[in-house]
């Protein structure tokens, strides 16, 4: 009888706790939908400098869901990572890898500068100074129907090797990729 009462109580608690926790934690398991967004024709992007484009990171959040990306065409002389279908154009994220402030590209110095705590990145987005822990994130790009499209984000380590997206301040060299595991919500494209 006591067991029945305790069991009944347990079921009643579970009926409240499971949906409540589910509501709170479900977004941790929801995969972000894959989206490609056309940003212009190939002629608009040169090898020598960046142009800015606005893409939508989060649909349904209005202006807040948009972000700037800096884009240029691949330059075989400086871009040493292996060529594939997704890096004919280089799309650099403006999210600073220190704590996520927006960086801007300064044409005169050919560097990305963060206004918050003085992070500096070179033309490839690799850290040159300040507190950032890894190079700027990038986005997959592809050419479809004659237009350049920007796709999902990926992170890179100091050798510009692709990793599943990580938040800022998460190191990807050495044991960093294990200390800061990738999350179910956002992964790099399979096979890249």
């Amino acid at each position: 009888m006591t067991g029945l009462a305790n069991g009944g109580g347990g079921i009643a608690i579970g009926m409240i706790a499971v949906p409540a926790l589910g509501f709170a934690l479900a977004p941790n398991l929801d995969k972000k939908p894959l989206a490609w967004e056309a940003v212009g024709t190939p002629e608009e992007f040169s090898q020598d400098t960046y142009v800015s484009r606005t893409i939508t990171l989060t649909p349904g959040a209005g202006e807040t869901g948009k972000s700037t990306v800096y884009m240029r065409a691949r330059n075989a002389e400086i871009d040493k990572e292996p060529v594939d279908d997704y890096n004919q154009f280089i799309a650099i994220s403006t999210r600073c890898m220190h704590l996520g402030c927006p960086v801007r590209y300064v044409d005169a110095s050919e560097r990305f500068i963060c206004p918050c705590h003085g992070g500096v990145y070179d033309f490839l987005g690799q850290v040159q100074g300040g507190p950032p822990v890894r190079p700027l994130d990038r986005f997959y790009t592809r050419i479809k129907d004659g237009l350049v499209e920007v796709g999902p984000r990926f992170s890179v380590n100091s050798e510009l090797k692709r990793f599943s997206p990580r938040d800022p301040a998460q190191d990807l060299d050495g044991i960093g990729q294990y200390l800061f595991p990738s999350r179910p919500t956002i992964r790099k494209l399979p096979g890249t």
Binding site: P27, L57, T58, G60, P168, L179
Partner: peptide
Amino acid sequence: ASAPIAGPYLGDFLRAGPDFGA
């Protein structure tokens, strides 16, 4: 999110996803 191991999941929990959203 910069805390090791738990940080990335905590960040997703606070943002309700990988990016700031609705």
